[in-house]
Design a protein around this nucleic acid. Structure first.
Length: 297
DNA sequence: CGTTTTTGACCAGCGC
DNA sequence: GCGCTGGTCAAAAACG
């Protein structure tokens, strides 16, 4: 090519010059075409990268959901074990609610961060309020880097010295889901009285209303499950509320079905990939073995 | 008027 | 040391 160009510059023969020009022109056109195809390839790669990022986000969300399921299973396991303890204790005359509560509060519980997903209707309820039976005082709000939705900070205000805090933020992938992160352990029960005093349970009322679908309420002893009181109230209402109770349970189940159906379909295709299943198994195993380190979702 | 929420300022931890 | 980020404080505003 360089030789041709040199020839084109220095040759006196016009016809040769002309052919050389044609050749160079043709070559340049080829180079331009190659450049265009390169550009196309780069764009395709960029599109692929975007797709992979989206897929990555979806996978992360799925991992969160699976973690929550794992937590529920673990809680069930603990409950089953506790159930066995109950049977043993029945024989020794300790099977009443107060004693149950007392016993569960004695079970060593990890005083760690726990995460819960709460489904809300973002059209009707755009607040960051998660009604869980406790009283919270908001002390801050912040927009974080990884999520355009603001994060609200709450402190438990039912007892003056209660160290429990919670953070509530809308899920980045699904704005209808609130992610509530609880930090610490209540030093009082849901009635506001200190632990061990259950005398005030008769006049206990709790805010309900916008409390909708709890996606992942790991069932734990009262003191550590912020959702249990609200649910317990809903599910123990008298006769006229039985319909509400059924509706509540159905809505929870519907929500589970709706939110998981699409994911399940997608997951089915992914589970065929041996690499994915291996990676997922490792992640789930990791979340179990490092439970104290990881937040409970 | 007391309580709660809002929001900008401040602080501490972390990575570079 | 500096900048970034998440968490907290506290004064002002809003609310009942």
């Amino acid at each position: 090519m360089r030789k041709l160009f040199f020839f084109f510059q220095h040759s006196d023969d016009l016809s040769l010059k002309f052919f050389s020009f044609l050749f160079i022109h043709h070559h340049l056109a080829n180079m331009e075409a190659a450049h265009a195809s390169c550009k196309e390839k780069v764009e395709t790669l960029q599109d692929d990268l975007k797709c992979l990022r989206k897929e990555n986000e979806t996978l992360r969300f799925m991992l969160d959901v699976m973690n929550s399921k794992c937590s529920i299973l673990q809680a069930h396991l603990q409950e089953a074990k506790a159930g066995q303890m109950d049977i043993d204790l029945t024989q020794t005359g300790f099977n009443n609610e107060a004693n149950k509560r007392a016993r569960t509060s004695e079970v060593p519980i990890h005083n760690k961060t726990q995460r819960f997903l709460v489904r809300t209707d973002p059209d009707q309820d755009n607040s960051l309020i998660v009604r869980d039976g406790y009283q919270w005082r908001k002390y801050g709000q912040k927009v974080t880097k990884d999520n355009p939705s603001p994060r609200a900070y709450f402190r438990c205000s039912m007892a003056p010295a209660c160290p429990v805090k919670k953070k509530v933020q809308r899920c980045r992938e699904d704005k209808s889901v609130l992610v509530a992160t609880y930090d610490g352990k209540h030093n009082h029960d849901v009635h506001g009285s200190s632990l061990g005093d259950s005398s005030s349970s008769s006049d206990y009322t709790v805010a309900r209303g916008s409390m909708t679908n709890i996606i992942s309420p790991p069932r734990m002893p009262n003191n550590n499950n912020p959702f249990l009181p609200a649910m317990a109230l809903d599910l123990t209402l008298s006769a006229p509320h039985q319909e509400n109770r059924r509706h509540f349970q159905n809505s929870v189940e519907d929500s589970h079905n709706n939110s998981y159906n699409n994911i399940a379909e997608y997951a089915a295709s992914l589970t065929k990939d041996p690499n994915f299943t291996a990676a997922l198994a490792a992640a789930v195993a990791n979340s179990i073995t490092q439970q104290p380190k990881l937040s409970k979702i």
